[in-house]
């Protein structure tokens, strides 16, 4: 067995009593669970959207994430790790499963008519060159393994420190760092192949 050097005390995230009290209530109180959804919907939605690049798919997957969280909430334990990390983990698994099932459909869609891709919520939808950059980047990202996609998205797109990424992915900090390095190189190769 390998000891993981991660503990709540090493994280910047706070796991306050109020949040844990909300989690406890949400096991039995629909209103409390709705509050969890409202607090985290934007962060989780943003993460999912930056992974899948489609507004409608994001809505569906965000619903799946919180439904999965609802089902798993009775087994959620306070181990000093904030609820947000737990939700990011569920979101990562949800997106990865969706990506695995839709890999070829996604690639074909981007290769084809970009106007149908649902990317109208991009930062600057009126700028064709920016749109092309985003789509090229996304296509390269999608061609990576799920582990590489996940670690890149959590760290670079969501801005989570490696310690927090390690908590979300359930692995060691060292593993996250090495995986990030390999993922960057893999992404670089894919970007070069597409030029």
């Amino acid at each position: 067995m390998t000891e993981l050097p991660i503990s709540a005390s090493t994280l910047n995230w706070t796991c306050d009593d109020a949040e844990q009290e909300l989690v406890a209530r949400a096991r039995h109180d629909a209103g409390a669970f709705a509050e969890i959804y409202r607090r985290h919907a934007h962060a989780i939605g943003g993460y999912v959207y930056r992974r899948v690049g489609d507004v409608h798919t994001t809505d569906d997957l965000v619903a799946d994430v919180f439904l999965a969280a609802m089902r798993a909430l009775p087994r959620y334990r306070n181990r000093g790790v904030p609820l947000r990390a737990w939700l990011y983990r569920i979101a990562t698994n949800t997106v990865n499963r969706w990506a695995g099932r839709n890999k070829w459909r996604r690639l074909v869609r981007l290769e084809g008519n970009l106007a149908d891709s649902g990317l109208d919520a991009a930062a600057d939808a009126d700028d064709p060159s920016l749109r092309a950059d985003v789509n090229a980047a996304r296509q390269a990202l999608w061609s990576l393994s799920m582990k590489h996609q996940s670690v890149l998205a959590l760290h670079y797109l969501e801005g989570l420190p490696v310690e927090e990424v390690a908590v979300v992915l359930g692995c060691r900090v060292g593993t996250v760092k090495s995986r990030l390095s390999r993922a960057r190189e893999a992404l670089r190769t894919k970007l070069q192949e597409r030029r």
């Binding site: 669970f33 409202r38 994001t58 965000v62 619903a63 609802m70 797109l157 670089r188």
Partner: peptide, 29 residues
């Protein structure tokens, strides 16, 4: 760096969906 440029472009995409989404909230309830 091409990798950072690509990641920057993806990071620039902001989520403009309706959050909280009333339909999702009702489905959850």
């Amino acid at each position: 760096d091409s990798v950072d440029s690509a990641l920057d472009s993806l990071r620039s995409e902001s989520w403009t969906g309706n959050t909280p989404n009333r339909a999702i909230e009702e489905k959850l309830m």
